[in-house]
């Protein structure tokens, strides 16, 4: 519930404030968003499984974002930034799909 409210608040803030992403952060924000989405889906699944834990969620959220950004940063430094961000997005996408499937099974029993 708190998370949903926070999400709404964040969206409203983003729409109202209309900020521009600082240039150095621009390659990392999309990856960070995808990583955070992965963490959120994992959290929803854990909640449905009855094994949700605040600490785990917070830690996994932050670490997901940081690790994803770090991978992209490293990729940029190594000259394979585009490929690595694609890879990160693919991996996170697979995880999101897996979690979404588990959530679906919980909610619809199908």
């Amino acid at each position: 519930m708190i998370a949903a409210i926070g999400l709404v608040i964040g969206i409203v803030l983003g729409v109202v404030l209309h900020p521009t992403v600082p240039a150095p952060l621009q390659p990392y924000l999309p990856i960070a968003v995808v990583a955070a989405l992965d963490a959120v889906f994992g959290g929803i699944r854990a909640r449905l499984d009855g094994i949700f834990d605040d600490k785990v969620f917070v830690v996994s959220f932050v670490s997901n974002v940081l690790v994803a950004a770090l991978i992209v940063y490293l990729g940029d430094k190594l000259g394979v930034g585009g490929q690595l961000s694609t890879g990160v997005v693919v991996v996170l996408g697979i995880r999101i799909f897996g979690n979404a499937a588990a959530i679906r099974r919980h909610l619809f029993r199908a």
Binding site: I2, L7, V33, V40, F57
Partner: peptide, 28 residues
């Protein structure tokens, strides 16, 4: 107490996520 504090942190994180999504979508 711990639960509410963690809930606040989760709310902040969710707000950050929503913010990030909107900002990124907008900048894209």
């Amino acid at each position: 107490l711990r639960r509410s504090r963690a809930g606040a942190v989760i709310g902040v994180l969710a707000a950050l996520l929503g913010f990030g999504i909107v900002v990124q979508a907008h900048s894209t």
